[in-house]
C-alpha cells in the first residue's frame, strides 16, 4: 500500500462520512442524488463478490464491508426514513440511470480480464463507478446552489479518484509488470467528469464564497 492509495481510500471514506453527517445532522438529503447512491450500492455489491472467494487483508475486507453497508444505509434513508425522504429532490433527480447500468454491463460482457461471472461483474462495477456520479452532477447543476456538506462530499469523491490515478502511476513505476487497463482507463474517464465541478469548487474556495454552478 503506497501513500497515494491510502490517501485515496481515506478521502473515499471521508466522503461517505461527510454524506452520513449531512443526512444525520440536518435530517435532510436535499442536493443528494438517490440515483447516484443506488448506483454506488450496485457497484460495491457487484465488485466485492470476491469477499466470498478471496482474502487479501483485514483492511481490505473491512473497507469492502464498510462501503457496501454505508451505501445501502444511505439508499435506505433516502427511500424509507420518515423525515429524510421528504427532502429528496425527486423532480431534479431524473437522470435515466438504467441506461448507464445497461451500457456498463454490455461493455463488461465485451471487455473483461476473464469470461467468468466474478470477472465480468468486476469489470461491470468499474465501468458503472466511472459514470455513477453523473446523476449527482446533473442534480447539482440543476439546483444551482450547493450546500457546504454536499459540495465537500463531491469534492472528497473527486479527490479519491485523483489519488487513485497517482497510485497507479506510482505502482506502474515501482512494480514490475503493473498494468491495469480496465481500471486505469475507466479511472481517468471518471476523474475527468469531476473537472468542471473542481473548477467551480476552487473558485468558490478562493473567493471564500458559496459554491454555485452555472446553469
Amino acid at each position: 500500500m503506497n501513500i497515494f492509495r491510502l490517501a485515496g481510500d481515506m478521502t473515499h471514506l471521508l466522503s461517505i462520512l461527510v454524506l452520513l453527517l449531512k443526512i444525520y445532522a440536518t435530517k435532510s438529503c436535499s442536493g443528494i442524488s438517490r440515483k447516484t447512491q443506488e448506483l454506488y450500492a450496485i457497484v460495491f455489491m457487484a465488485r466485492y463478490l470476491d469477499l466470498f472467494t478471496d482474502f487479501i487483508s483485514v483492511y481490505n475486507t473491512f473497507m469492502k464491508l464498510i462501503f457496501i453497508a454505508s451505501s445501502l444505509a444511505i439508499v435506505w434513508c433516502m427511500r424509507f426514513h420518515p423525515v429524510v425522504r421528504r427532502s429528496y429532490d425527486r423532480e431534479l433527480d431524473t437522470f435515466r440511470y438504467f441506461f448507464l447500468v445497461g451500457a456498463s454491463f454490455a461493455l463488461a460482457l465485451v471487455w473483461h480480464d476473464k469470461f467468468t461471472l466474478q470477472e465480468v461483474f468486476w469489470a461491470f462495477s468499474i465501468y458503472l463507478e466511472a459514470v455513477a456520479i453523473l446523476p449527482q452532477l446533473v442534480l447539482l447543476q440543476r439546483s444551482g446552489n450547493v450546500d457546504n456538506l454536499t459540495g465537500q462530499y463531491v469534492f472528497f469523491l473527486g479527490a479519491y479518484r485523483a489519488f487513485y490515478i497517482l497510485n497507479w502511476i506510482y505502482r506502474y513505476m515501482t512494480e514490475p509488470r503493473f498494468t491495469r487497463w480496465i481500471a486505469g482507463i475507466s479511472g481517468v474517464v471518471q476523474t475527468a467528469l469531476y473537472a468542471d465541478f473542481f473548477y467551480y469548487y476552487f473558485i468558490s474556495w478562493k473567493n471564500n464564497s458559496k459554491l454555485k454552478l452555472p446553469a
Binding site: R5, D9, H12, D50, D54, I56, N60, M63, K64, F67, D113, W122, Y164, N167, R177, R180, A183
Partner: peptide, 10 residues
Amino acid sequence: LKVKNVKDEL
C-alpha cells in the same frame, strides 16, 4: 512469467 492480476484495490 505470468503474474495473476490480483484485485487488491478497492
